[in-house]
Amino acid sequence: MMAAGVRIAAVAGVLAALLLAPFAIYPVFLMKALCFALFASAFNLLIGYVGLLSFGHAAFFGFSAYVAGHAAKVWGWPPEAALLAATLVAAVMGVVFGALAIRRQGIYFAMVTLALAQMIFFLSLQAEFTGGEDGIQAIPRGVLLGVFDLGKPLVMYYFVLAVFLLGFLIIWRTINSPFGWVLKAIRENEPRAVSLGYRVDRYKLLAFVLSATLSGLAGGIKALVFQLASLTDVHWHASGEVVLMTLLGGLGTVLGPAVGAVLIVGIQNYLAALGAWVTIVQGVVFVVVVLLFRRGIVGELLARRRKGV
């Protein structure tokens, strides 16, 4: 365990770096990384702490992006209201999907979530309000609370950072709460948690809804950042990417998913011009991580330090 002083210094250092980052690095890249870091952290709540692998989280991320885009563009809602709507819709979807998916375990859970997400993909393809193949384009970023003009890149960056930190804090609090410990107990030994009198299904559902809600928040804000909501974000590829980010960073670690998200977004940017190579590289990363370091980058570092002490 780190001494409290060191820990506070480390957190302060990371916060300072995040505040200063847009002066050194292209803000749009940073904002994209933050959106996916929140998405992956929300996803990790489920796989890392309850042991449930959802292969359909793109449904919440992508569909919420449509909701935020539609609210901001067609209804002319301010960004805070559009985001709230996106988050609420994701929560409702989370209740429905979660209630269905937790009826099966393990591999079936993954297949059910994947299939439900594919249904959302086809609905998004056919529905009027999503704009089909074109998506919703030129979404206005608007003026936050009537004060902050999100059209300015720096203002937008700090807003995205604030949303990310808020989401991250919620996840961190959840993991370290009594609720979070019950989740971990379910992950480690579900029959035992049942025999201790916990209503396991309720805990799973609540974790699922929380994860879906925060994924929706991430999707909504991504729509504002890129001023675009498209089929890419509801496609199963996006579900696979968030799995990859979390796996690469470290399942069940607090910081892992964020680290993984930054790395994968970086790879995407770097290889963007090379077409299908992005997919191939992502596949290779999957295979290498599963075969060689299943704990992920952060998980390996933590394990190594524990061994060293």
């Binding site: 190579w277 997919t279 992502q282 596949g283 290779v284 999957f286």
Partner: peptide, 8 residues
């Protein structure tokens, strides 16, 4: 991951 590699 293998599916991504093959299809890519």
């Amino acid at each position: 991951g293998l599916a991504l590699i093959v299809e890519g």
